[in-house]
């Protein structure tokens, strides 16, 4: 660690860590978005709203359990499931009947959903800022080097690879995952080998939305939970998905890494315009690889 600080001053280390934990949230949300985009071919603008709902539900759950450690863990575990349940209802009730429509129609439809869900949040939780308490053990500064950011950031950075691994396992090792990979390319033929594609889509949609909710729940202790938090995120998530290659989960990981790191390091280089860096990175990537870094399923 002495060595580490000799080549890399603490403030840079801090920014890298912040960038990586930011990347984890972005990856989790974007991987859900790209999964849905790749298999169902729906550009789900309402994905950001589900992320926001995940954060608000996390707030309510945590409050219900009286905050603290229990509240936090309950929130992190239950909020994604709540979002998944909501998405199941929406999918079975509405989307399931519309898969054959044009992409533009679906885009507009999910956009209208984003608006509706936004209003729903306003009705249920109101317009005030909310916060979720971090458990004590996560609050403290990072012991090594005593970096002045919460240990929670390390926790996030550790979760990221597990989610990636879980998704890899789902798409490559489970039957539903294999079916969904086939359906991403040729859904008619998947039906013609006897599979009810509609249910496969429902499962994939719900998993994707679960990830949005999970992102929202995980981010809830480190941001102000507020209306509008969906807007920036959905933009970033789409950018990441496009950068990585539509429908490619590993692409989402790569895109999130680039986005998270350029964002946090950009702040060090040029504080007032730090926000520009990730977008500049995205433009550069797309300039050289218009279809994204990794193989798109489109």
């Amino acid at each position: 660690m002495e060595f580490l600080s000799s080549i890399c001053p603490p403030e840079i280390l801090c920014q890298i860590l912040v960038g990586l934990s930011r990347m984890t949230i972005l990856f989790i949300v974007a991987s859900g978005l790209t999964l849905i985009l790749g298999v169902l071919r729906i550009p789900n603008i309402a994905h950001g709203s589900l992320y926001m709902i995940g954060a608000f539900v996390a707030f309510s759950v945590s409050k219900w359990f009286g905050g603290g450690t229990t509240g936090f863990w309950m929130a992190v575990v239950l909020a994604p499931f709540a979002v998944a349940l909501l998405s199941l209802v929406v999918e079975r009730g509405i989307f399931a009947h519309l898969y054959e429509r044009e992409h533009l129609m679906l885009l507009l439809l999910t956009f209208s959903f984003a608006l509706i869900l936004g209003d729903l949040v306003k009705v249920v939780w109101g317009g005030e800022y909310r916060t979720v308490q971090l458990p004590g053990s996560f609050k403290g500064p990072i012991p090594v080097e005593s970096l002045p950011i919460p240990i929670y950031n390390i926790f996030l950075v550790i979760i990221g690879p597990f989610v990636a691994l879980g998704l890899w396992f789902f798409t490559n090792k489970t039957k539903i995952g294999k079916i969904s990979r086939a359906a991403a390319v040729d859904r008619e033929m998947v039906g013609a080998v006897g599979i009810n594609v509609s249910w496969v889509f429902a499962i994939v949609f719900v998993i994707g939305c679960f990830l949005a909710g999970m992102g929202g729940a995980l981010v809830s202790p480190i941001v102000n939970i507020t209306l509008g938090m969906d807007h920036t995120l959905i933009m970033e998530a789409f950018l990441i998905v496009i950068m990585g290659g539509l429908g490619n989960v590993w692409g989402a990981l790569l895109g999130a890494l680039i986005f998270g790191l350029t964002q946090s390091l950009g702040i060090l280089i040029w504080p007032q315009f730090g926000i520009v860096f990730p977008y500049a990175a995205a433009v550069t990537v797309l300039l050289f690889r218009p279809t994204g870094l990794l193989k798109s399923t489109w």
């Binding site: 039957k175 390319v185 033929m189 998947v190 080998v193």
Partner: peptide, 24 residues
Amino acid sequence: AYVPDDRRVFADLSVDDNLEITFR
């Protein structure tokens, strides 16, 4: 069961998985 004229095997899946995902 249907075998289309352009075959349409699932290109991303292995031979084994092409067989495995079929409804039995």
